[in-house]
Design a protein around this nucleic acid. Structure first.
Lengths: 159, 159
DNA sequence: TGGGGTATTATGGGCGTCAATGGAATTAAG
DNA sequence: CTTAATTCCATTGACGCCCATAATACCCCA
């Protein structure tokens, strides 16, 4: 594999399984860290629960901008705008890595993703963001996604 | 490598649960304080009851501008404009923190948000403002907001 | 091509700092 | 003079920082 750091470090790819220690800390896979520092320089990193899956999402400024764009489609003080804000922003945290490259997962995050400390977590690369899953939950999700993606690419419609 | 602590916090995010002492004082979460001093330099800080929720709102000049934008949609002397002004502006106070970074919540504010002293309060980050909620009330609001936000983002529920 | 050496990563635990909180002291007000 | 409000100080407890170790991957050289 290409040892040249900075080659494929353009997207979050592959999956990694790491250990969560008793304090709720997990090492972010080294390949992701390089990309994270790059994204951090572009305006910070955030992390939050995935709104439609039992997983956590981490991304850079581009991820946050996507959320802000949806909010700004609606006028100030509009009920739906307030709903979007309340449903998303309060659950986002600034993502900060300790000196060893670990994230600290709070109780709320652990619960949302069905994770436990101590325990294990799977990092899933998703291009310009990555997710953190409970291993078994990811296994199920991965199997489903692979099957459906294959069917879609064969030209079959979705259900 | 670590994400420069206290640095990029450009928005109010996350939630924090703090204690209200017998005198009605609450510590503003440290991450918010940094942002508040920055916003204070840009034109002052305000705080008041939320008009559409049992909570308190605090924000900087940009938050006030959002309200002003909404008011300015209506022509001068228009009855609804007057109504908006009277319903929002008279209840706003200047937000001031004591030396330890605490706000003093008066009886009116406590009552409006259903808070008690001593007791507990939840700080809710909402981008360029934050709210203060009674814990149980926020829990309910959060659950509703998350469900509706998820539905909205799936493309449902455009009203 | 295999083996040993080296560097980087992953993991665990202990220590220190700062934030959060409670109470006392000082000032202002009635 | 009494009462209330604001400022100041002290304690606590959590979180982030730093170390030390273990495991892995990588590289160089025989």
């Amino acid at each position: 594999m290409c040892t040249d750091r900075g080659g494929w470090v353009e997207f979050f790819l592959s999956t990694f399984r790491n250990r969560i220690d008793a304090k709720g800390r997990v090492s972010v896979p080294a390949p992701y860290r390089a990309l994270l520092t790059k994204k951090n320089a572009e305006g910070g990193l955030i992390m939050g629960p995935d709104i439609s899956a039992p997983a956590l999402v981490a991304g850079g400024r581009d991820y946050l901008d996507g959320i802000n764009r949806r909010i700004d489609e609606l006028p100030d003080l509009h009920p739906e705008r307030e709903m979007l804000i309340d449903g998303l922003l309060p659950f986002l945290n600034e993502l900060s890595l300790d000196q060893e490259g670990r994230v600290q997962l709070g109780a709320q995050f652990l619960e949302h993703a069905g994770l436990s400390a101590p325990g294990e977590a799977v990092f899933v690369g998703r291009r310009n963001s990555f997710q953190i899953w409970e291993p078994k939950a990811w296994e199920a999700r991965a199997a489903e996604a692979r099957a459906k993606a294959a069917a879609y690419l064969r030209g079959e419609g979705r259900s």
